[in-house]
Design a protein around this nucleic acid. Structure first.
Lengths: 234, 234
DNA sequence: GGTTTTTCGTCACACAGTGACGAATACTTT
DNA sequence: AAAGTATTCGTCACTGTGTGACGAAAAACC
């Protein structure tokens, strides 16, 4: 938390001609301009002033560019879960940790939504998600297994980990589509529904657009909307 | 339910030299022998006595071969959900429908487990799952949305559909790893845990191996194991 | 100046997936 | 029977991803 850029001790060989972050920025711009399929790795490399081969030295695949930040989030969830008090219900701890990690700054919102829109609209990108989701799910599964005294690969922790991510993804998607409230509001609502078993008595309404859409108001009441938009049923 | 093979009215052009089922059988055998990556589409086509181009006329991709049966299951779930009584809780209806559709015969077990093992061990195959999972999730989401009078793409149905599939996948995986009881037992246990919100009071133990592993005994008590294998916590 | 180390660029290759187009093979019409 | 029509197949050519091999470039070290 001191500098951000750690002072590099002088290394031996030829200096790098580019960086993963630079390639990522260029790739995302090109994906947004020409679409994912309309962008070739050659185009990215040319923009970066390097070769196609070098791109594949920084990223395993053309799709992996999108997941740098997501992969970092996984370790943050692990750390946050480790600091959770032991005397609260497991699902509460999971919900709190997930919500805590997802406090994006307002500047990141546009970028984040651009990524998700790309992933949602490109089948090949959606498919690439699976591998990265696995690590996320395991972070939750491992915590649940420890709290419950069960093996990590047994049915219960596995189900919780996957169901949690699935629920969060639903919240992500709806937030990306509407973006009328803070992402954490959606996450909190969806995870509360999950930990109540999606019972019939509690119907969780989507957050209402409280403010026009400027600074993403953080406090939007949502939890108990007794009679939500039951309108257009089909 | 009469014949299985519908009497074909005589068609016009050149008769088919193969079928999707034949290509599927050959492909699965080769995948099992040489692994997924070690099998090229040329090899499959050669075994079937046809050309690579013809393979891609029957399947969109090399991975799509694995998902023929799964895709059929989606429509079955839709039909079963449509026949569910309206006066039972939504999550109960979902659980019942999923369990009802998954009554595989004992003959299919080995084949089914081979597929899942392949999908689980090959990253590329795991990635291809996403597209097929989407249809499954939507089948549940649409039902939940109708029962609740909410739009299909709103947060709540979306979350339920995804969380349900995620839970079922956990059950599938554990069953495939152990295979000591009927698949439906695992599905029922996991989905009951989901619809109870994974609360702390209820810990769902994995089904115990009741019989050595021959005919997959169908009735294995599992539901309320008050003090399960709390042994090796880590 | 020579050596070591790391990164880069070029080349070659295997394979997935796609479009175009003519050939093969059935039924249908005249 | 001959011509026409419809459907499937096989071949060819092509783009693009991803990988291994190998020498060249550019820095630090001795």
């Amino acid at each position: 938390m001191a500098d951000g850029v750690v002072a590099q001790p002088p290394r031996r060989g030829r200096p790098r001609g580019t960086s993963g972050a630079a390639l990522e920025a260029i790739a995302l711009r090109l994906y947004a301009e020409h679409g994912f399929d309309g962008t070739t790795v050659d185009m990215i490399a040319a923009q970066a002033g390097t070769s196609r081969r070098t791109f594949f030295r920084y990223f395993d695949s053309k799709t992996a560019v999108l997941w740098r930040e997501f992969d970092r989030e996984v370790s943050q969830i692990r750390e946050t879960l480790a600091t959770m008090p032991e005397d609260i219900p497991v699902m509460d701890a999971v919900r709190r940790a997930v919500v805590a990690v997802n406090h994006y700054r307002a500047d990141d919102v546009d970028d984040l939504r651009a990524r998700m829109g790309l992933i949602g609209s490109t089948p090949e990108l959606a498919a690439s998600a699976t591998l990265h989701y696995d690590a996320w799910e395991r972070a939750v599964s491992d915590y649940v297994a420890r709290r419950r005294g069960l093996p990590e690969d047994s049915l219960y922790p596995l189900a919780v980990g996957r169901a949690t991510l699935a629920t969060c993804r639903a919240a992500y998607d709806r937030w990306a589509a509407r973006a009328d409230a803070d992402l954490t509001v959606y996450l909190d609502a969806a995870l509360r529904a999950l930990s109540s078993g999606f019972v019939d008595d509690v119907i969780v309404a989507e957050p209402r657009p409280a403010r026009p859409r400027t600074s993403l108001g953080r406090s939007v009441s949502l939890s108990s909307d007794p009679a939500p938009a039951r309108a257009r049923a089909r």
